[in-house]
Amino acid sequence: MRYESPDTLEAAAKMLAAESGDARVLAGGTDLLVQIRSEILSPALVVDIKKIAETRTVSEEKGGFRIGAAVAGAELKEHAKLKKAWPGLVEAANLIGSTQVQGRCSLGGNLCNGSPAADSVPALIAAGAVASIVGPNGRRELKVEDVMLAPRKLALTKGEIIASFFLPARPAHASDAYLRFIPRTEMDIAVVGCAVSLVLDASGTCTAARVGLGAVAARPLLVEDAGKALVGTKVDEAALEKAAAAARAACKPIDDKRGTIEFRTDVAGVLTKRTALIALERARKA
């Protein structure tokens, strides 16, 4: 296994594209190194992207934020402004693993590892985040909900790297939240994850809403109908029930030891309501 740590995206993309064997990006390594050590993967080349400034920086841009794909969870938590604008995204990222894992785990790695249960992905989707991707043929943008196709399958081509995520500007009275169901309180994989992002007008009527769901299908989902059910309402019980029904309808979960199809589907509805109420409470104060 070769190791490279270039300081530009262009150089990194070129190295990844030129390798004839398996070539992998290394961000925090909390998925990749586990997979290498357990011999699930044996790449010929790992390209560490943490010396590339864009991947390691959180900056304000056009009133919104650009978050480097390799910024660690613990660093996101310490960014007061980001946390204020996107508390749900930051709490989702901070649910990943332990304090030690937080020291390394990144949004880019969480998405590109390709797990349907990745905690930060529904929150990125609800936020309307756009991935900025650099490959051997230049840069392109892709909405986060379009990056993952199926477990371990991404819409990235050989040599492509997610450099950063762009989160749009927040108007007044906007906020988000993320909840997951796990059988214990820490260190477990989501049975269902749900993120909701809301915008209210001055009278408290919802003017925009996005709902992201994790662990209930082959990839994290944007549930457009759940968002639509909330828009134009005061996010009252009737609207919440409609959103929950849309969330349940979007579920195509697997049956496994963590949860049956029935259970996951039901919990997706429950979490949609609860998460929306937290986002609502926050948006009123924002």
């Binding site: 390594g29 909390t30 190194l33 790992v46 560490d48 020291g103 390394r104």
Partner: peptide
């Protein structure tokens, strides 16, 4: 295997020596 790298708590089993 907990250690600090540049002040950050990490699992040293999930960091490469070259890093």
């Amino acid at each position: 295997c907990s250690v600090l790298v540049d002040g950050r708590l990490v699992c040293s089993c999930l960091v490469l020596g070259v890093e």
